[in-house]
Design a protein around this nucleic acid. Structure first.
Lengths: 319, 319
DNA sequence: ATACTAAATGTAAGTACTTACATAAAACAC
DNA sequence: GTGTTTTATGTAAGTACTTACATTTAGTAT
């Protein structure tokens, strides 16, 4: 293509724009043709009137569904077509909300008058496609079908997620990340609960309260920024406790918690853990869901916790 | 496809609408993704900023050309991008009309931030197209190229013209068309000149003034309606004169005049004409052009005409 | 130098929709 | 039957442009 055609140079990046441009060209030309015939008729009404010409009578929503338009668009067209007396309306007998639309005789006449033009548009389009030697209609249909299985939004989103995740590195404790450990955890605790004494102790001095007794702290790092953390305490006799797990809000929902928790569990396994448990609160739906997914089971009756907020205890099934 | 999808059922007739729908879906999803990243950035600015990121500095019109947008669209984007400080502007030194736009550092930063998303959009789109198993980009390019050689408008227009022409029948004089003969001719004479005595005579009684002396009158009939007429008078000794040619305004420009004139000439030939001439006025540009095209040559010096409006005489070169 | 045309930009209003919100009737839950 | 949710429709305002028109400056002809 033309060297100056920047949009075409962008290739896949500007597919939407290119489709739009082609569509605008085609629809603009058709609109001009309608105008030339100076029928008192707007091209945008065509699909709707044509539909009503095939069907007895339809409600606003039914039309919107068939034409894949929003209902306000149909309401607007309906009012315009009604004022031109191309359609008639009456209330549905069984449902007083519904406004049933049907084509009028005047409407039928326009469709009939339009017929030769429509046939010509159809033929010219077919000719254009044949001349181009590509089955554009088939291509569109295929792409539409693929989009039905997964939308562009989801494709890009999950692609971004994968990419981001591949960039996130898990590292063991480093003293330069002490403040991150504290701030990330204070974040969620203060959002949902209140800081307790043991929180302050552990967060201010993880070395003393987690590492020295044989536990560990891990960080999730993305582009030199700490975006998540987890602690695992060693209570002796093979008993480990997962705690102080936090992921920065803007990175939540990206399975970073899962990555951290997996790391903590494998640490415990390496230390020949006999039991791994955690205490939490059912308010933290996302966290509980994650624990559940990774294999933690709720302990029915339990007591003694260092935190007021605890209302659930879960243990990990070591094989 | 879904039985309820009326637009797809229309096939070639609704190609534009389908392209638009697909484009809207894709572009809407991309817009949603930008929004999710809450960059202070509108998707519609993207192509322009991206272009400015590649080029040093461009004027409004240059950008419009490159992006195939209208210049007011670019003016609007430029103002928005300027107020967000994504672009800088300065006047061209040589041309005080031109407003040269360049990307700012802030703008470069956004493009950089956008980069991973752009790459993902590109990848996901490529994936979508591969999954669909069709080369949509190639198809679009092909169709665009075909449209460059002839626009949809011209295709449909010439198709309609051909179709209409195929429906127009030329018939010899019939008395039921007498009024049409009169009215059609009075139309153009009164529009450009004034009716003269001989006009009234011939138009009121073509049988006497044209037919009885061995001339002929033909009609162009479309769907039982007379839309054009021509007379050819036999002046004796093999001399024939074409006159009273008229085509209804709404059917002008469709070569119906050519059809009538050809018929008249072949009538004269059948009658072993030695000379066929006509008198006209240079005001009637379209008619003169037609005579010229069909082989009539201007007679340099001539006198004696039955009409005041005559200022040109042409003869047909009989082989 | 003057007059005209053309080019570059700007502005207003329209177009073909959309999203967001409002309202009324119907359907359902209990 | 009463309250709540859902469905069908309507309305207002926004969006991403366009067309039509206006203004200013440049270029060209005389």
């Amino acid at each position: 293509m033309n060297q100056a055609d920047f949009i075409n140079q962008l290739q896949e990046l500007a597919l939407g724009t290119r489709l739009k441009r082609l569509s605008d060209t085609l629809m603009g030309d058709v609109a001009k043709i309608y105008k030339d015939e100076h029928l008192d008729f707007e091209p945008r009404w065509f699909t709707m009137l044509y539909l009503l010409n095939k069907e007895k009578s339809l409600s606003i929503i039914e039309i919107a569904d068939r034409l894949k338009l929003t209902h306000p668009a149909v309401v607007q067209f309906a009012n315009q077509l009604k004022s031109k007396k191309f359609v008639l309306e009456k209330k549905d007998k069984k449902d007083a909300r519904k406004r049933m639309l049907a084509i009028s005789n005047k409407g039928k006449l326009v469709v009939e008058k339009l017929q030769p033009i429509l046939i010509q548009i159809e033929n010219s389009t077919r000719e254009l496609l044949q001349e181009s030697g590509v089955d554009l209609l088939y291509s569109i249909e295929k792409v539409e079908k693929s989009l039905l299985t997964q939308s562009m939004y989801n494709r890009v989103k999950s692609g971004l997620k994968k990419h981001l995740l591949s960039e996130v590195k898990i590292t063991p404790f480093q003293s330069k990340y002490r403040t991150d450990f504290k701030l990330l955890n204070e974040g969620w605790i203060q959002k949902f609960f209140t800081l307790e004494k043991s929180d302050n102790q552990i967060l201010s001095n993880p070395e003393k309260y987690i590492l020295e007794s044989g536990g560990a702290v891990f960080f999730a790092v993305h582009q030199k920024k700490v975006i998540g953390t987890i602690g695992i305490s060693n209570h002796g006799k093979g008993v480990f406790e997962v705690n102080k797990m936090a992921v920065a809000e803007e990175f939540q929902g990206l399975s970073i918690g899962a990555k951290l928790l997996t790391e903590a569990i494998s640490f415990a396994k390496k230390k020949r853990a006999k039991q791994v448990y955690l205490e939490s609160n059912t308010k933290l739906r996302a966290a509980i869901h994650l624990y559940d997914k990774l294999g933690f089971k709720q302990v029915e009756n339990f007591n003694s916790s260092s935190y007021k907020r605890t209302n659930i205890k879960m243990t990990y099934a070591l094989n």
